[in-house]
Design a binder for these strands. Structure first.
Lengths: 316, 316
DNA sequence: CTGTTAGCGCCTTCAC
DNA sequence: GTGAAGGCGCTAACAG
C-alpha cells in the first residue's frame, strides 16, 4: 500500500487489484484522508481553476457573465477564481496578472486598461479570453466582442423611425471602452440621419446616476433619451416620473443590456439585449478549446438585439 | 544568487544586500520570472484563497454577498473561489468539500443541506462561516444569522397596522430554510393578531414566479400581499398592473431583501432590508479572525429592517 | 499489478 | 548576508 497505489486508487485508475483498492478506500475513509489539491496541482502542472477578472461585481451584467461562466466550467471540473478590480486600470492590470498566475487560464471582462497595456500584457496571460471588448487587432487573443456601436445605432434608428429628431445620450463611465463604442455608433447614426441632434450628458452606470440626470432630461426639449445602460434607464424612469414627465407620451426612453428587470419596469423598457449569461458560457467553451489546444485565438462578434417595449413611442 | 536568495528577495525580506537584491530583481524582470503560487502554497501550507459556496449565483442577494466578501478579502491578499451549487443538497455537500479542500477557509451561503448533514460536515470544513442560516445550536461554527422570522413578523405587523386583516404570503422555494423561517414568523404574527388570516400560495424566487401568481392574487379578497422576496414582488407588481389592480389602493405589496431596484419599482416597494453587502464583508472579518485564531466560532444575529415605501398603504 | 524513485517550485532551517 | 539541503504531498516513469 504505497503512496503510488493510494494515488492510483484516489484517481480511479483501474490498474489496481480490487481488494487492495477496497482496503485503500477504507483506510482513506477511516482517516478521512483527502488528497491535497495543492500538491496535486504542483505535480500535475495545472490547477483546474480559471480566473475571471471583472471590473464591477455589483453590475448585474457582469454577474450574469460570471454565472454563465461558472456554470459552464463546473461540469468540466473547473472552478472559478473571481477578481473584482474596481475602476482603477492600474489595479486591474496587477490583479489580472496575479489572478492568472494562480490559475490555468483567464477571462477578462471589459477591461478599463488601454489597448497599449493590453497588448503588452495579454501575450503572457494566455490562454485568455477577452469579453465585451474588441482588443486591437494586433493582439493575438481570443475575444467575444459585443458590437456596442451597432447597438447604439440601432437605438437611434428606432427612435428616429418613431419620429424623434432631438435625442439625448446619457453617457456611461468615461473610462469604459464600451461607452466610447456607443458614442461611435451614435455618431454614425447621426451622420446617416440628417438633421437630428444627439446631445450627450454625463451619466454614469448606476440607478442613482440615472435619477440624478432626470431633472436635466426633463427640462430639455429632447423627445427621446438613450441611456448607457438599463440601470440608468431605470433611474431615469423613476426620476422622470417624479418630474411629471410621462413615458413614452412625453419622452421615450431606451436602455442597454436587457437586464432581467427591464421587462418589469414601468413602463417596460425598450432596450438592446446582450446575452450575458450565454456569453459567459461561450467564454468557457473558448477557454476550454484553448486549454486543449483544439483551437487558436480568434474573435467572435455579437450583435445586441433591439427589444421594443413600451418605454419608447411615437414623437409628438 | 541561489534560490534561497531569490526567494528572500521576492518576498521582500530585508536581509539581502541591496546590490544583490537589485540584480535578482533585474534578472527576474528580464526572464519575466514569477514565483509559482502553487508551489508557494504547497510549501507555505496556505493558498490565500477562500471558497464561497452559493446556491444560486443568479440571485441578486447572493451576488451582493459575494461582492461584499470579495472586496473585503482583496486588501488582505485573499482571493475568492466561487462554487455555484444549484438546488441539489447532494451536489452542495460535495461541492463544499471539494472547494474547501482547495482553499484556506469556507463561506457557506444559505445552504440547502439538512441540519444533520451540516452537523457532520462542518467540523471538517472549518474554518468556516455560515451565512443566512442559523445552524443547529449544537454545531460549533461561526454564523451570521438573519432573523427572517422577525422580518416576516414585522411585515405582518406593518400591514395589520394599516388595517389589513386578510393577507397572502407568496411563498419561496420549499427547500429554502429562509422560507421556512419566514413562515414561522408569519405564524407567530397570526397568533398575536387575532382574527387575521394569512393564506399561503406557492411562489418561487424569481420575477416570473411573481407574475405567474398575480392572477390568483388579483382574484383573491385579500387586501395585502407579502412576497418571499423583492424579485417576486416586482413580478407581482407588474402582473397586478396587468390585471388592473392598483397598488397600494386596491392591494398592498411587501417584499423582502431591499434589492437596489426596490426603491425604483412602481410604486416603490415596501420591503425588509437585509444588508447583504455588509454581511459579505462581515463574513470575511469573521473568517479572517478564525484564520488568525483570534476568535472562536460564534453566531451573530441580524435583524431585517422594515423600509416603508409606497407599495403598502391603508386598507379600505 | 505494485512499489521505488525522482521531481513539480518554493520556503525555511541550518551552517558558513 | 548567503548558500546548501530538506521537505511540503502528490503523480509519473520505471522496475520488479
Amino acid at each position: 500500500m504505497s503512496r503510488a497505489t493510494v494515488s492510483r486508487v484516489m484517481n480511479g485508475r483501474d490498474s489496481v487489484d480490487a481488494d487492495l483498492a477496497e482496503r485503500v478506500k477504507a483506510a482513506a475513509q477511516e482517516l478521512d484522508y483527502r488528497p491535497s489539491s495543492v500538491a496535486r496541482s504542483l505535480s500535475l502542472g495545472r490547477t483546474q481553476t480559471v480566473a475571471v477578472m471583472i471590473p464591477e461585481l455589483d453590475n448585474p451584467m457582469f454577474q450574469r457573465v460570471l454565472q454563465g461562466f461558472t456554470d459552464a466550467c463546473a461540469p468540466k471540473g473547473y472552478r472559478v477564481l473571481v477578481a473584482n478590480t474596481g475602476d482603477d486600470p492600474e489595479v486591474e492590470v496587477a490583479t489580472a496578472v496575479e489572478a492568472r498566475n494562480r490559475c490555468d487560464a483567464l477571462l477578462m471582462v471589459a477591461p478599463r486598461a488601454s489597448d497599449e497595456v493590453l497588448q503588452e500584457l495579454l501575450p503572457q496571460l494566455q490562454p485568455a479570453v477577452v469579453l465585451g471588448r474588441q482588443p486591437s487587432s494586433r493582439i493575438d487573443v481570443s475575444s467575444l466582442a459585443i458590437d456596442y456601436a451597432a447597438g447604439a445605432e440601432a437605438a437611434v434608428d428606432h427612435l428616429v423611425e418613431l419620429g424623434h429628431r432631438e435625442l439625448i445620450y446619457v453617457a456611461g463611465p468615461e473610462l469604459s471602452s464600451s461607452n466610447r463604442e456607443r458614442i461611435v455608433g451614435l455618431e454614425r447614426a447621426r451622420q446617416r440621419h440628417r438633421g437630428i441632434t444627439v446631445t450627450q450628458i454625463a451619466g454614469g452606470a448606476h440607478l442613482d446616476d440615472g435619477r440624478r440626470v432626470a431633472a436635466e432630461v426633463a427640462a430639455s426639449s429632447a423627445s427621446a433619451v438613450f441611456a448607457y445602460n438599463d440601470l440608468m434607464a431605470f433611474g431615469l424612469l423613476a426620476g422622470l416620473a417624479e418630474h411629471g414627465v410621462r413615458v413614452p407620451e412625453d419622452k421615450s426612453v431606451v436602455g442597454f443590456d436587457d437586464i432581467d428587470l427591464a421587462g418589469y419596469a414601468n413602463p417596460p423598457l425598450t432596450t438592446l439585449a446582450v446575452p450575458h449569461t450565454a456569453l459567459g458560457a461561450r467564454a468557457w467553451e473558448r477557454l476550454d478549446a484553448l486549454l486543449a489546444k483544439r483551437e487558436d485565438p480568434q474573435t467572435e462578434p455579437y450583435q445586441p438585439e433591439l427589444v421594443i417595449r413600451a418605454s419608447s413611442g411615437p414623437a409628438h
